[in-house]
């Protein structure tokens, strides 16, 4: 609490003392800018933690800014800001492929190195994509886990962030494909948006459970949705009868996983994603990372393999009761 207040006061002070501070570019340090889809989201906050670690190790300036809500138009404005600031490299998690690519091409034309992470832009708008897991990989992991918990049969429902978010649509599409192809006796009964609000996810989950008495599983594919759904199941007294899984961070779900409400949470190591992204961006700006390389050594994390222009982070990870205490992000 006091920390927050100090931080706030500092910020106001910084603003007031603006005339006395020197320019960003005064040092000879490299400047890398990291753009999340939405910056308040715990997912990207933990990417940022990893990115900051890499920035400290490499001794560079790191910028981290993005829209508060996932908003494609604002992402473009921020990238254009950075272009006029003349940063050295930009790393982007694209809300919308085509939308962001115009701004990224402009950045490349001005000699700024561009990579993407988390969600790709068009291939000609960036040099590399740090691929944490393909939409397919995520969707398959989720659907396979759901089928395992339901023994391959029964009804389930999805809680998504919004009806318009691009990544949500992509995951949902691959979940449905996997469902049709491998689990014919499972049935997706409803998809409900929660607007990235935990409270709304809880209300939606409550209504879903009463409307579908045979529901066996709730799958939340946005991070605020998982604790919301879990709380609803807990309050309905249906722990064990209705299982909860989803995409989310260990810290937000720890208590529900331990209580046995949430069966498992799927995610890759987001801190590593941020770390790897910054390492790759710096290597690219310094000319150490080039197209055609097969391996990339990222500081303390060691070696990662490159397939084409994708730097691969690894497979999605499944957090459950047994391993969740080993992670803190």
């Amino acid at each position: 609490m006091t920390l927050r207040i100090t931080r706030f006061t500092l910020l106001i002070l910084c603003f007031a003392l603006q005339p006395f501070s020197i320019g960003l570019a005064a040092g000879e340090k490299l400047m890398v800018a990291l753009l999340p889809k939405s910056k308040g989201n715990a997912y990207f906050l933990s990417c940022k933690a990893g990115a900051e670690k890499a920035a400290r190790e490499l001794g560079i300036n790191l910028l981290f800014d993005g829209p508060v809500d996932s908003n494609a138009a604002k992402q473009n404005e921020i990238v254009e800001n950075w272009i006029t600031l003349g940063v050295d490299a930009i790393a982007v998690a694209a809300e919308n492929k085509e939308g962001i690519s115009t701004a990224l091409r402009k950045a490349r034309k001005q000699g700024i190195q561009v990579i993407t992470y988390d969600a790709d832009a068009l291939a000609d708008a960036r040099s590399f994509f740090v691929n944490q897991a393909t939409p397919q990989g995520i969707a398959h992991a989720l659907m396979d886990e759901a089928a395992r918990l339901c023994q391959g049969t029964g009804e389930f429902a999805i809680i998504s962030a919004s009806l318009t978010a691009a990544n949500q649509r992509e995951w949902q599409k691959h979940i449905e494909l996997r469902l049709a192809e491998k689990y014919p006796s499972m049935k997706l009964v409803a998809v409900r948006p929660c607007d990235d609000l935990k409270d709304k996810a809880q209300s939606e989950a409550t209504a879903l459970m009463s409307a579908h008495p045979n529901l066996k599983l709730l799958m939340a594919i946005c991070s605020p949705g998982v604790p919301g759904a879990a709380e609803a199941v807990k309050q309905a007294g249906k722990v064990g009868r209705i299982k909860v899984i989803g995409l989310g961070l260990p810290n937000e779900n720890r208590r529900y996983v331990k209580e046995g409400v949430t069966e498992s949470v799927i995610l890759w190591n987001t801190e590593d994603l941020g770390y790897l992204t910054v390492q790759a961006a710096v290597a690219l700006a310094e000319g150490k990372l080039k197209v055609g390389m097969k391996r990339f050594v990222a500081g303390k994390l060691g070696e990662f393999s490159i397939e084409g222009d994708n730097i691969l982070l690894g497979k999605p990870f499944l957090f459950n009761k047994d391993n969740i205490d080993r992670f803190d992000f």
Partner: peptide
């Protein structure tokens, strides 16, 4: 809105939009 995004101190706080 656009000017704040060019101020070094605001950039360092990553808070252009909120400011």
């Amino acid at each position: 809105k656009n000017g704040l995004a060019t101020l070094p101190s605001v950039i360092r706080m990553n808070a252009a939009e909120e400011m």
